[in-house]
């Protein structure tokens, strides 16, 4: 992928669940190195948006391009796309029956076909980056929520993706563990990782994001760099949302 081709392109994308319109007319372009925060009230389609990017949800209208590849039913190699798109879930979703190390190595060996030793070394490298190398042999249940989420981030990073998607990564964490995860995400951003982050953490948005996107009822209502977004929201709904969320 050249630096001219945007990493992600969404054109007039729509998605329905039965009668419910989850996404409507979404236009979004993400270039390499961009850090995007998506916010909005619950049910606004934020999760659906990023889940369409790695096709955990299939869009019914419009087009989505990851690099040069379009996401369609007829596409040849969905897994090739998924290798390049990392995802971190709200409920971590670690593999409970495997050690932390095995969690990190599984996809490397099965999807990137790496030999054991190399996968192991990469896994330990990223475990160090998320600052919990000593937990390598533990099972997920033995770790705290914050630690589990950091393992989840490391697991996605081991695949060396081009872009990382975060679906409310800190929403399920006890307050005292939120910052350890956000710290890791800030580090990641500093290293230039392209990321799209659905989150309520406005402090993170302010310090890290290049662009903040506000969604409501399946549409993108407003997007702007954080300074403009927080100081000068244009839409009524945006102002309303910000006043509610910035209360505490």
């Amino acid at each position: 992928m050249t630096s001219e081709t945007p990493l992600i392109r969404m054109q007039a994308v729509g998605k329905r669940f039965g009668n419910f319109q989850a996404l409507a007319n979404i236009d979004l372009t993400v270039t390499s190195g961009e850090r995007i925060v998506v916010c909005g009230p619950s049910g606004s389609g934020k999760s659906t948006l990023i889940r369409c990017i790695n096709r955990l949800e299939k869009h019914d209208a419009g087009r989505i391009f990851i690099g040069q590849t379009e996401l369609t039913d007829a596409m040849e190699d969905l897994n090739a796309v998924r290798r390049e798109v990392g995802m971190v879930f709200q409920s971590y979703n670690l593999f409970p029956h495997m050690t932390v190390l095995s969690n990190l190595m599984l996809a490397q060996r099965l999807v990137r076909k790496m030999p054991r030793q190399e996968a192991h070394d990469i896994a330990m490298h990223y475990l160090k980056r998320v600052r919990i190398p000593e937990q390598a042999k533990k099972y997920p249940i033995q770790l705290s929520g914050g630690q589990q989420q950091r393992v989840a981030i490391a697991r996605a990073l081991c695949m060396k993706p081009q872009v990382m998607l975060f679906d409310e990564p800190t929403s399920a964490l006890d307050p005292e563990m939120i910052h350890e995860v956000l710290d890791v995400m800030v580090d990641l951003a500093k290293d230039g990782m392209t990321m799209i982050c659905v989150t309520h953490e406005m402090g993170f948005a302010r310090s890290v994001a290049d662009r903040v996107i506000f969604m409501d009822e399946g549409r993108i209502l407003e997007q702007a760099p954080p300074l403009d977004f927080f100081q000068n929201p244009q839409q009524g709904r945006t102002k309303q949302f910000l006043s509610q969320i910035l209360q505490h």
Binding site: A80, R82, G86, F89, L94, A107, L110, V111, A156, M159
Partner: peptide
């Protein structure tokens, strides 16, 4: 757990791989 299987999907594991390494155990 469906969430765990989704994580496997997101990592690029194929249907068969998910069934063998995740679902079966």
């Amino acid at each position: 757990d469906r969430g765990m299987l989704e994580a496997g999907e997101a990592l690029g594991l194929s249907k068969t791989q998910r069934f063998v390494y995740l679902t079966t155990p």
